[in-house]
């Protein structure tokens, strides 16, 4: 197993354990995006865990679908932004690890609150524009749920980014086809989202978000495509609940916690590679 794959497995264990301990949270999308966060934080981005809000001369990341906070927190803690044992405080009183990510408690690594959906791309665009004004050549990354594309504001921002040629932005869509009330094609059919992004003037890529090698290659390719006058979108196919067989592909696991027995089954499927927190 390569280092990245080991990290992804450990992050998946963190996710399941955090949500189990809190008996609350969103394991499905978190597990699906564990490989993405691993690739981004441990391979792709140049970033500093000492954390400075402005992120000058760093690549910076915005999580728009804030409910997958467990994977975000695990990736940040394992990158050194805050102590690993703080993951025990997830969703508890007096914690910096709020149910949805926030800056209010000054958790290092988080640059804006998210949770109410549809807002993150706008913020990412703003940060990308600030980088341009500051002559900072690093990139801005953002992640969005596919269900989140139901929100009209996302399309406002997609239109703006192309119009204003925000070409230092790489936005990824977690295309798992699931949202709270059911499959996206039933709740609100997204159609061909790649073609929609293209029609709005984006350069797009498509990848398997649960194949680490393919994912890293796509993220590298995306970086090569920046600076060419268009924003870059990655349509990332993932499986909700990836890595835990009884969760995989089931929208019911969007936002519920495993019980003790389910935790045991899950952990048996996820090798402890780098030590549990």
């Amino acid at each position: 197993m390569t280092d990245l794959k080991k990290m992804a497995s450990q992050i998946r264990r963190d996710i399941v354990r955090m949500v189990h301990e809190a008996q609350s949270g969103h394991p499905g999308g978190s597990l699906g995006c564990a490989d993405f966060f691993t690739a981004l934080y441990f391979q792709i981005m140049k970033h500093d865990p000492k954390f400075n809000m402005d992120g000058i001369n760093e690549d910076i990341f915005f999580l728009s679908n804030g409910h997958i906070s467990p994977v975000f927190y695990s990736a940040l803690a394992r990158s050194g932004y805050f102590p690993l044992n703080e993951l025990h405080t997830f969703r508890k009183l007096n914690s910096r690890l709020q149910g949805h990510p926030a800056t209010h408690e000054h958790l290092p690594g988080v640059r804006v609150a998210s949770g109410s959906l549809g807002q993150g791309m706008s913020v990412a665009i703003g940060a990308a524009l600030a980088k341009r004004l500051n002559k900072d050549s690093r990139l801005v990354y953002s992640l969005h749920g596919d269900g989140e594309l139901d929100e009209g504001q996302v399309w406002e921002s997609i239109m703006f980014a192309a119009h204003r040629k925000v070409d230092n932005l790489i936005s990824t869509i977690d295309w798992n086809g699931q949202q709270i009330d059911g499959p996206t094609r039933v709740v609100m059919n997204l159609g061909d989202i790649r073609r929609k992004f293209e029609a709005f003037g984006w350069t797009t890529l498509e990848t398997d978000g649960n194949d680490m090698d393919a994912l890293v290659a796509t993220l590298n390719e995306a970086r090569e495509l920046t600076g060419s006058g268009t924003p870059v979108g990655i349509m990332m196919r993932t499986v909700m609940g990836k890595g835990v067989d009884y969760m995989e592909g089931h929208h019911e696991w969007h936002g519920i916690a495993p019980n003790d027995e389910q935790l045991k089954i899950a952990l048996a499927q996820l090798p402890e590679t780098l030590g549990d927190y």
């Binding site: 703003g126 940060a127 600030a130 009209g152 504001q153």
Partner: peptide, 21 residues
């Protein structure tokens, strides 16, 4: 210029502060 898209404008504003604007 954000066009007739106030929600996006507010979000872009929030993002611009990250980087000191």
């Amino acid at each position: 210029q954000c066009g007739i898209a106030e929600a996006n404008m507010i979000g872009i504003g929030a993002g611009l502060t990250i980087g000191g604007k």
